[in-house]
């Protein structure tokens, strides 16, 4: 059982066991980097945030109670940290520039070299999601990321954001619709260009 294993590892971390912490780090580093990346839209900044979040997790090991799932506890630490850093003005979502024909040519060449059409779709999709995320509130972004990329339940997201489940439901709905509409707009804009080609 992963949850029990996590709790056991965390109790060992609280007793000063660094190898237990390393095991937790290996298990959750991708999730936390992904969360931070969706938050700030830049991989290098996301790793800085992830560093801080894991150091905070290590230092708060003694306050962890196994009644809460470790992943939920970790995302509470991560959400608080990212929200605070963004509010302090330390990090901002970059302004996403409109796609130019030059970029499209360069992207097209890069993808052509690697082959499949699917890669092109992935990049366009990434851009649409990034643009939509950059325009929503921090709490919508956090709730959306935990729900869509980490598959967390609304109840756990509510715990992580210190919010009610009703508030989380509303945050996720608004954010999902914003992303859906941005993807739709992008697809509508791309379709004529593709049919001409």
């Amino acid at each position: 059982m992963e949850v029990d294993e996590d709790a056991e590892l965390m109790l060992r971390v609280a007793a000063g066991d660094k190898s237990a912490f390393a095991a937790l780090f290996d298990r959750y580093q991708a999730s936390i980097c992904r969360f931070a990346y969706r938050f700030v839209g830049d991989q290098a900044r996301a790793e800085e945030l992830a560093q801080e979040i894991f150091v905070k997790l290590y230092r708060s090991a003694k306050s962890y109670r196994p009644s809460a799932k470790l992943k939920t506890f970790l995302f509470r630490v991560a959400s608080n940290h990212c929200l605070n850093e963004v509010r302090r003005g330390e990090y901002r979502m970059p302004h996403v520039e409109p796609h130019t024909e030059e970029q499209e040519g360069a992207d097209g060449q890069a993808q052509h070299a690697s082959g499949p059409d699917q890669a092109l779709e992935g990049k366009e999709l990434e851009r649409a999601v990034g643009e939509a995320l950059s325009k929503m509130s921090e709490r919508e972004r956090a709730a959306f990321t935990m729900c869509r990329f980490e598959g967390m339940a609304y109840r756990d997201i509510a715990f992580a954001l210190s919010a009610s489940e009703a508030a989380v439901k509303s945050l996720i709905h608004r954010a999902t619709l914003a992303v859906a509409r941005r993807i739709e707009e992008l697809q509508a804009g791309l379709c004529p260009a593709r049919s001409q080609a």
């Binding site: 660094k18 390393a22 780090f25 290996d26 580093q29 991708a30 980097c33 992904r34 990346y37 991989q43 996301a46 790793e47 992830a50 560093q51 894991f54 150091v55 699917q118 779709e121 992935g122 990049k123 999709l125 990434e126 999601v129 869509r148 990329f149 999902t176 619709l177 992303v179 859906a180 509409r181 993807i183 739709e184």
Partner: peptide
């Protein structure tokens, strides 16, 4: 529309953390 979007999100490229991250965290 929501259903289509949720399915599309699964196709987003994965993000791989750098190898240096582990070393930096453990050192701190």
């Amino acid at each position: 529309l929501i259903r289509r979007t949720v399915l599309q999100l699964a196709a987003l490229p994965e993000l791989s953390p750098s190898l240096a991250l582990r070393r930096k965290v453990m050192a701190r």
